[in-house]
Computed example of a mutant assay.
Amino acid sequence: MHAAAKIAIGALAGLIVCGNAFAQSPTPEERLKQAGITLRTPGAPPANRANAVRTGNLLFVSGHTSQFATKGKVGAQLTVEQGQQAARQSGINLLATVRASLGSLDKVKRVVKVLGMVNAPEGFTDPPKVIDGFSDLMVEIFGDAGKSARSAIGVQALPGNDPVEVEAILEVE
Rank of each mutant, 00 (worst) to 15 (best):
A152H: 06
Q67M: 09
G133S: 07
R31I: 02
F124L: 04
A47G: 06
G133H: 10
D132A: 12
A69S: 15
P128E: 07
K6G: 08
A157S: 14
A21K: 11
A8F: 14
T70H: 12
P46Y: 01
R150L: 09
L59M: 05
P163R: 05
F124A: 03
A5F: 14
A152E: 09
L170P: 05
L12Q: 12
G160K: 00
E122F: 13
K73H: 10
V80C: 03
N48R: 10
S151K: 14
K33I: 04
M1Y: 12
I153S: 12
A157F: 07
A157T: 08
V172A: 04
A35D: 01
G10F: 08
A3M: 13
G19M: 10
N93D: 00
L137Y: 11
Q24S: 13
L115I: 09
D136T: 14
N20H: 14
L105V: 06
A5C: 10
D162Y: 00
T125S: 15
G116H: 09
K113I: 01
L78P: 05
T65V: 11
A152K: 09
D144E: 15
G72R: 10
K71I: 06
V74W: 09
S135L: 12
A23W: 13
T65H: 01
I7R: 14
N57D: 15
